[in-house]
Design a binder for these strands. Structure first.
Lengths: 151, 151
DNA sequence: GATGAAAGCTTTCCGTG
DNA sequence: CACGGAAAGCTTTCATC
């Protein structure tokens, strides 16, 4: 599905603050509150909007260690197998299969280094994993909540 | 700041759906609507909650190509310089300085491969960048909206 | 897509443990 | 100090144009 300009501006307004009222969004994009609601409902129904969430400071929740774990898999490992395995680990907040040497990359948040190591060992211990390579985050430089249309 | 159990449950409820009403959250955590609002206000004031945002299907916004760009910098490149440079590129949705061979990793969303290449060239053209190495996402396996306390 | 009315939510104030 | 109840003011929602 492709969004039009009005939808994009609504999504942008929600990306900045998902708890804005429909009336507030409407005044920004030039629509009445019910018109905004109908579009948001439609964007949810079509899957363009997948939900609304809170942005938290990871440190405030006790997640002080972040890193990426590159996963090298055995032959014939399907994305589904990787998905099922990582989905069980709450510390893994994002994962993708990728091009290049590694087969997948997982983004991990842990309480501390000891906890990060446990996650690493748990991933390395999965039967389909041949080896891993991990990279720790030193300092987060920016974390945008993607909110616009591509150039 | 450290959150208590009630705060964590409120954050968890908001992570699942940031547009839930205070009364709804209250009924889940056993508090009245005003009590939930007071806690959310405090979590925002202390910086534990940094905002509310919408979750979007990138493809619906026209971002069909995702990748990670590892950045290798010249000597004495400060994180601030990297931050200022990447912050100007809307395609860069997240970036961190990291341990390992590369100095920083940027997560990039682009409309298509051609667009991704343009972003890559723009990053590679920055004066502090010595070389880059990029990895394309084949399929996103999971993307969680971090929502709990560390084990 | 706009409008208007009914239902529901948010926000504030105040009393209580 | 934090919570719950109640009231005023908005927001959401639905029917209608």
């Amino acid at each position: 599905m492709r969004l039009n300009d009005l939808d994009e501006r609504i999504v942008h307004a929600l990306a900045e603050d998902a708890r804005r009222t429909y009336a507030d969004i409407g005044s920004r994009v030039g629509l009445s509150a019910p018109a905004v609601k109908r579009r948001v409902d439609r964007l949810r129904a079509t899957g363009a909007i997948t939900g609304f969430t809170v942005r938290v400071d990871p440190a405030a929740l006790g997640w002080n260690t972040e890193g990426f774990i590159e996963i090298y898999c055995g032959r014939n490992t399907s994305p589904e197998v990787i998905h099922r395995s990582l989905d069980r680990m709450p510390e893994v907040v994002a994962a993708s299969t990728v091009t290049g040497e590694a087969d997948a990359i997982a983004q991990v948040f842990a309480a501390d280094m000891r906890h990060f190591e446990q996650v690493l060992e748990r991933i390395a211990g999965e039967p389909y994993v041949e080896r891993t390579k991990s990279v720790l985050v030193l300092s987060p430089l920016l974390r945008r909540h993607s909110s616009g249309a591509p150039g």
